[in-house]
């Protein structure tokens, strides 16, 4: 294994420990914890055995393993952006409903004075 592999492994294992401790302490839901743990596990496999990604890439008709990882990363990021955007919209909607409720309550109490 090269120095880079050791470093990458260290980072990924650190992330796995953080994820598991977050799940145990209830900061993350069980579903989130398991999903992220799986991601780190896959990353560990790819780091320890770099030829594996190359094999998978060639099967899919992509030349190199690094390209496969890049494409996957782009797709995952785009999905992530969309999910955050949808969540942001829901949050804005909830904020509006809250602000409306407060406005009408406040107006009601000042009118009755």
């Amino acid at each position: 294994m090269t120095l880079f592999q050791y470093l990458a492994l260290l980072v990924v294992v650190g992330l796995l420990v953080l994820t598991l401790s977050a799940m145990v302490r209830g900061w993350a839901t069980r579903k989130e914890g398991i999903t992220w743990s799986l991601v780190w596990l896959l990353a560990t496999i790819a780091i320890v055995n770099p030829d594996l990604t190359g094999t998978v890439a060639r099967r899919l008709g992509i030349g190199r393993g690094a390209d496969l990882l890049l494409y996957c990363a782009v797709v995952v990021m785009l999905i992530g952006f969309l999910m955050i955007y949808v969540r942001l919209r829901r949050l804005r909607r909830e904020l509006t409903l809250l602000v409306r409720h407060m406005a009408i309550m406040e107006a009601g109490s000042s009118e009755s004075k």
């Binding site: 904020l95 602000v99 406005a103």
Partner: peptide, 18 residues
């Protein structure tokens, strides 16, 4: 007598519905 206030700016559509 009917003055209503949004605590933070929510846009014209939100204000109309309020």
């Amino acid at each position: 007598p009917h003055a209503v206030r949004h605590a933070v700016n929510r846009g014209q559509g939100a204000a109309l519905q309020t």
